[in-house]
């Protein structure tokens, strides 16, 4: 049942993330991407089974990992994903910061071309 619970949680995070991707505010879009990242990590973790709460770490004198422990493979995958996700997040935040700073808009509906939007002070509306 725990698997079912976390599968539902991952689905909910994913749904909220997708919903945020469809918002006009670019900050919401970034939050949506980050939520989807969480949903992905949780999905991998759930798909790797939640059978044991024991970490995949051997005791001092063991020479092999004795079952049952958690599966080390998804953990290695997720660890990588978390750190890469951090890099992505930093880049996104700075990118948003630049876009807003340069164009004076945070509305994705206004970003329909790759050219620089020259809006001047018009954004004060």
């Amino acid at each position: 049942m725990t698997g079912l619970l976390f599968a539902a949680l991952a689905g909910a995070l994913f749904a909220i993330g997708i919903y945020l991707l469809m918002r006009r505010s670019i900050l919401k879009l970034v939050i949506g991407l980050l939520l989807i990242g969480h949903a992905a990590n949780l999905s991998i973790f759930t798909a790797g089974r939640l059978d044991s709460p024991i970490p995949p770490i051997m005791t001092q004198d063991a020479i092999q990992l004795n079952a049952p422990t958690a599966d080390p493979l998804p953990q290695a995958l997720i660890l990588t994903a978390i750190v890469i996700g951090f890099g992505l997040q930093a880049f996104l935040i700075v990118l948003v910061r630049r876009i807003v700073g340069r164009n004076g808009v945070d509305d994705t509906d206004e970003m329909t071309s790759t050219d620089i939007v020259d809006r001047g002070q018009e954004d004060g509306k």
Binding site: V83, G87, A90, I93, V94, R97
Partner: peptide, 16 residues
């Protein structure tokens, strides 16, 4: 590497 990238980003943002 991890120390480097975190500090690089944070310092850059803080200075900005």
């Amino acid at each position: 590497v991890v120390i480097g990238i975190v500090l690089k980003i944070v310092f850059a943002l803080a200075e900005e």
